[in-house]
Amino acid sequence: MVRHTRSEQPAQQLVSLSEAAEHFGVSVKTLRRRIADGTIRGYRIGRLIRIDLHELQDRLLIEIPSMK
């Protein structure tokens, strides 16, 4: 079993849906759909929904293999 210390884990950077949508060039509706289907996790803080930019980058950005 691998245990991570605080220094090894990347810090969460929770941002609003609109900030994340602008950052990645997608719509807020797309992010809401991804939260609903379980692709990404949303975090509720009071009435606000926040998402982690690091997690979003890991889950949404997919490398396209190049032809050689």
Rank of each mutant, 00 (worst) to 15 (best):
M1E: 01
V2Q: 07
V2W: 00
V2D: 14
V2G: 06
R3I: 13
R3D: 09
R3Y: 02
T5N: 15
T5Q: 11
T5A: 14
T5R: 14
R6F: 10
R6T: 15
S7N: 10
S7A: 15
S7Y: 13
S7H: 14
E8L: 14
E8H: 13
Q9C: 11
Q9N: 13
P10S: 12
Q12V: 07
Q12E: 14
Q12Y: 11
Q13I: 10
Q13N: 13
L14V: 03
L14M: 15
L14N: 12
V15M: 08
L17N: 00
L17Q: 02
S18M: 10
S18L: 03
S18P: 00
E19Q: 11
A21G: 02
E22M: 03
E22F: 05
E22I: 01
H23Q: 14
H23A: 04
H23N: 08
F24W: 10
G25V: 08
G25F: 08
G25R: 12
V28Y: 04
K29F: 03
K29M: 05
T30M: 03
L31I: 11
L31Y: 08
R32I: 06
R32V: 05
R32D: 06
R33W: 02
R33G: 00
R34V: 01
R34H: 12
R34Q: 09
I35G: 13
I35V: 15
D37A: 08
D37I: 13
T39Y: 00
T39M: 02
I40R: 07
I40C: 04
I40A: 02
R41K: 15
R41A: 02
G42F: 11
G42K: 14
Y43T: 08
Y43V: 12
R44N: 14
I45D: 11
I45Y: 03
I45K: 13
I45C: 10
G46L: 08
G46F: 08
R47A: 15
L48H: 15
I49G: 03
I49R: 01
R50P: 08
R50M: 09
I51S: 09
I51Q: 06
I51A: 07
I51F: 11
I51D: 02
I51M: 12
I51Y: 04
D52Y: 04
D52H: 09
D52I: 14
D52T: 14
D52K: 12
H54T: 11
H54Q: 11
E55Q: 09
E55L: 09
L56K: 02
Q57D: 10
D58I: 01
R59W: 01
L60I: 13
L60G: 00
I62W: 00
I62Y: 03
I62C: 01
E63Y: 05
E63W: 05
I64C: 03
I64L: 04
I64A: 12
I64T: 12
S66C: 00
S66I: 06
M67C: 00
M67F: 05
K68N: 07
K68R: 07
K68D: 03
